[in-house]
């Protein structure tokens, strides 16, 4: 598959409680995004939305190893990362619905979900921009000796923009505690990444240019993903500097709600849907002795969580008109003159 080193060194196997937690997180994220999609089709979620259906194992793997004061930066495809960092689901749903009880009061929307109180430092909608910003947060962590690790998720298309290269070089030269995680879902928006990139593995094959170990992992394997997350976060926390991880994955749907994704061969879609991380982990857990009823209960609980969050979000009013002019400046307002 690749000249890059595949990550396989990450045994011992994740313990049962953590695997169940990863399962729970993936199921909640999946049901949450399916609900978002439903609400979009009903015209209740406006604008756009970029779903990560099928890609949940990557965010879940990292969420399982991060500490409360660690920081996560993600992209406009960031519902899952923000949710799994601990942002309240109802406030995220309310933000997507444009309500006053939204996590950003309706000012951010789908592409800018943020919950600083949980270390979800933002969803960035300009490709690559958050990579230098994540490096900067890691710089502050290092200088202030906070022990924090910063994890920055991005897509395969990001590997061809300048900020990617600037951030990697900068983070390595300054030995910053940041983990850059490329979610390679094989398509940059509508175009196959391979057809516009000089190397086969868009992130891993660039690692050596920044004196980094090439790390290529199956992003649809929750156990492998968790092991890589553990290893790279530990490296950053112990002062060994940044890592660059490329996780192969696939989005079940299109780039955004406007995209039916007809450019993808049916066989390819079928192959990847068959490798959906959620049923895969479920089967493995059962094979390892977990009772199916335990997993069923997790599924049912997740449905209740999503139902409750949706109801709570929909109960919120639209934002007060006065908030249009608030929070440009730290004084709470937006005045620019006397």
């Amino acid at each position: 598959m690749s000249k890059a080193v595949r990550s396989r060194s990450d045994k011992p196997r994740t313990d049962e409680a953590v695997r169940l937690e990863i399962y729970r997180m993936m199921v909640e994220a999946r049901l949450f995004e399916r609900r978002v999609h439903d609400l979009f089709l009903q015209g209740l979620v406006k604008g756009t939305s970029h779903l990560a259906l099928g890609q949940e194992a990557i965010a879940a793997g990292y969420a399982a190893v991060l500490q409360p004061n660690d920081l996560v930066y993600c992209t406009y495809r960031g519902h899952v990362h923000t949710l799994l960092r601990g942002a309240p689901m109802a406030a995220l749903m309310a933000e997507l619905l444009g309500r006053a009880n939204g996590i950003c009061g309706g000012k951010g929307g789908s592409m800018h979900l943020t919950d600083v109180s949980k270390g979800a430092m933002g969803s960035y909608a300009i490709v690559g921009a958050h990579m230098p910003i994540a490096a900067g947060a890691a710089w502050a962590a290092k200088e202030r000796e906070t022990g924090q690790v910063v994890v920055c998720f991005f897509g395969d298309g990001t590997t061809n923009i300048g900020a990617f290269h600037e951030a990697l070089n900068f983070a390595v030269v300054w030995e910053l505690p940041v983990v850059f995680v490329c979610e390679n879902n094989l398509y940059m928006e509508y175009t196959p990444i391979r057809s516009v990139t000089a190397v086969e593995n868009p992130a891993a094959d660039r690692a050596s240019a920044y004196a980094l170990e090439p790390i290529l992992v199956d992003g649809n394997d929750p156990d492998e993903m968790h092991a890589v997350a553990r290893r790279t976060v530990d490296l950053a926390r112990s002062g060994d500097g940044p890592s660059l991880v490329e996780a192969r994955t696939y989005r079940h749907g299109g780039h955004s709600r406007a995209d039916p994704a007809k450019y993808r061969p049916e066989e390819e879609v079928a192959e990847w849907v068959a490798r959906d991380p959620i049923p895969s982990l479920r089967e493995r857990l059962i094979a390892d002795g977990i009772d199916a009823t335990t997993l069923d209960e997790i599924d049912r609980a997740a449905e209740r969580v999503v139902d409750d969050a949706t109801a709570e979000a929909q109960a919120g009013p639209p934002p007060d008109r006065s908030t249009l002019l608030t929070e440009l400046w730290a004084d709470g307002g937006s005045e620019w003159r006397n």
Partner: peptide, 11 residues
Amino acid sequence: GAVMGGAMNGL
């Protein structure tokens, strides 16, 4: 970007 991230995290 670094000064933005730095400012987000206490500098």
